[in-house]
Structure formats: C-alpha cells, structure tokens
Nucleic acid binder design. Structure first.
Length: 208
DNA sequence: ACGGAGATCTTCT
DNA sequence: GAAGATCTCCGTT
C-alpha cells in the first residue's frame, strides 16, 4: 500500500476560493477511539477578509476567530449558535484572514463509530452538514488551531482522487442573511460535487 | 414536503 | 438587545 499524501502547507497558501475547489475529493482524517474516522470532502465554502461581509475575517480579531490570521493549513474550529462546532481550514499567507468551511463529507472509514455518534439517524444525515460532520467525526473546539499538515496533530487532510471540473457545481453560500449579497456568479464561494447524496442542501447552482 | 421555534455562546450595535 | 457560516423537533399541508 502506498503511503497517503498529507496535503502540504503550500496547498493552503492560496486564495480561499481556489483551496475550496481543490479540497473537493480530499480526505479528512481523525483517528478516534482506536479507529480511523475519515470522509471524502464533497462540499466547501470560502471565506475571506475585510471585504467579505459574511466572514469572521471581516471582524476584529477575537479569542474565537484568531486562527484565521495564522499560518495556512491550520484548523479554525468555532462554536455556532452556542451548540455546534464548525471546522474550517485556514488559507492564504499569515496576516490575511481567510478560511474554507468544510460543509459535508462522504463517510469512508470508521462507519460504526460515526453511526454511534449520530444516534440511529439515517446514513445520509451522518455527515451532510458542517455541524453534523463535526458530530460524526468527533471534531470539537479541542482541535482549534491544530496544524492539519501534520499527522502528529491527530487531525489532517490527505490527497484523494481529484474531482474533475465536469462534476463540480458552484453557488452562493448557505445561511447568508439578507445583509450579505453574494456576487457568486462572478466569484464562486460554495463548491460541491454534483449529485453527491451527502451535499448538505440544494440551492442555486451552476454546473458544467 | 414544508415551516417555525428553540437551544445557547460569541460578538456586535 | 439582537443576530448568527446550524440542527432537530413538532406542527400543518
């Protein structure tokens, strides 16, 4: 068996929209409870800096959002609605706040653990959403700011089968309030694998 | 299938 | 005081 390739820092040291595209097909890995929990990334969203009304990078630096200003390739895990953890990967050079939200994965390894973590829910609902996948893979605030380019961190992302352009869809980000007008037709923010059952939601879509 | 409300922490106005 | 990169439950259609 060929050793898996852990995505290197240079992969993340680019514009968030490009990283969001190229993360499709990559494998998120979290060893937990003696097993390898993993999933194929099938949906992402890009968030950038001061000019992005929806991004935490537009706000002041705070105890919550500080990882966005750090080195690319690190995790930014934050609590939303006081209830769910959301996993992001930091992009762009340090000092430029930007990140990609992992919105959905397709379960690969550790399915029995995921099933237990998702308490009897149908397989489709294990990892089809940013909050859900964090529950399924046991990703929490303890993983905030870990270096995802090192397996020693206990959480990392491996290269997977590339997803060809013909299968990729783009659209506006999910959950944006009325204040945020998305120029998604000129600059795609949300990326997903067309037709994949684990994509979290339908929505306006451009597919090739 | 669809819509509304609640849970509950961080940040902003 | 209110809104938010969410999810689940419970109501009605």
């Amino acid at each position: 068996m060929i050793a898996p390739i852990v995505l290197p820092r240079a992969f993340y040291n680019r514009r968030a929209t490009l990283v969001a595209r190229d993360l499709l097909g990559a494998i998120l890995v979290h060893p937990f409870a003696g097993q390898r929990l993993s999933g194929r990334i099938v949906e992402t969203e890009a968030y950038t800096g001061h000019d992005d009304l929806a991004s935490h990078g537009r706000q002041k630096r705070t105890p919550r959002n500080f990882p966005m200003w750090g080195d690319p390739g690190h995790a930014y895990v934050y609590l939303i609605y006081g209830r769910y953890w959301l996993l992001n990967v930091v992009c762009e050079p340090a000092g430029h706040p930007a990140a990609v939200l992992i919105r959905a994965v397709e379960p690969l390894d550790g399915e029995d653990v995921m099933a237990a973590n998702r308490a009897g829910r149908p397989r489709r609902e294990w990892t089809s959403g940013p909050g859900r996948l964090a529950l399924a893979l046991d990703i929490t605030g303890e993983h905030n700011s870990l270096d995802l380019t090192r397996t020693e961190s206990g959480l990392w992302i491996e290269a997977g089968e590339p997803v060809p352009d013909g299968v990729v869809c783009t659209g506006p980000r999910i959950g944006m309030g009325p204040r945020v007008l998305e120029p998604w037709f000129s600059m795609p923010w949300r990326w997903w694998v067309g037709g994949n059952p684990y994509v979290s939601r339908k929505g306006l879509a451009t597919c090739k």
